[in-house]
């Protein structure tokens, strides 16, 4: 789910940037440091929408760096357990498949793919193919296919968030059009 959040970030600016364009430097450094990164509680920071306050820099006595406590408004993506998400398949193998949900990686194990999907290693590219008996139409899960899945577990590391999902429920699985 996407949220609009007001967040804080401390920017430490080296002395060579002190001057007339100081504010610009602080803003650029903020974009560099937070956009595309993960904030433990809030998930992925997709982009900074507005910088509300740069504050007055405080000089650090030992280092000469100036510390700015920046308040900004950002678009964040946070996923929750049991959330249904849409993604794009990236890798398919006999253990299951990986999908990308924006910046997130998701793995769906073969056991959580409905049993009427068979893994076909001789297909090019390899794919899970429904045999068409239980499913009304022949569907394929292959690289590039849009899928809808439910998140059953997730993990937040320092650099990335990834989750495991299932498509073994009604209305989940390959989608015609996202």
């Amino acid at each position: 789910m996407f949220f609009l959040k007001t967040l804080h970030h401390t920017v430490r600016l080296p002395p060579q940037f002190f001057g007339p364009r100081l504010r610009e430097h602080v803003e650029r450094k903020l974009y560099d440091e937070v956009e595309g990164h993960i904030e433990g509680r809030y998930g992925h920071i997709i982009c900074v929408l507005d910088i509300l306050d740069v504050g007055r820099g405080v000089l650090q006595p030992m280092t000469g760096l100036a510390e700015f406590n920046v308040v900004y408004k950002a678009l964040v993506l946070k996923v929750f357990k049991n959330m249904v998400v849409d993604g794009v398949v990236t890798t398919v193998n006999q253990l299951g498949f990986w999908a990308e949900i924006g910046p997130l990686q998701m793995f769906v194990a073969a056991t959580l793919i409905p049993s009427y999907y068979r893994f076909d290693p001789s297909a090019n590219p390899p794919a899970y193919v429904s045999d068409g008996e239980e499913a009304d139409i022949s569907l394929r899960i292959e690289k590039g296919q849009a899928v809808r899945a439910r998140i059953i577990g997730m993990r937040t590391d320092a650099r990335e968030i990834f989750c495991v999902g299932t498509i073994k429920e009604d209305y989940l699985g390959p989608q015609e059009e996202l």
């Binding site: 793995f107 769906v108 056991t111 959580l112 993990r155």
Partner: peptide, 8 residues
């Protein structure tokens, strides 16, 4: 990576 792929 430390998460069960079946039960999460």
């Amino acid at each position: 990576r430390g998460i069960c792929a079946t039960c999460g």
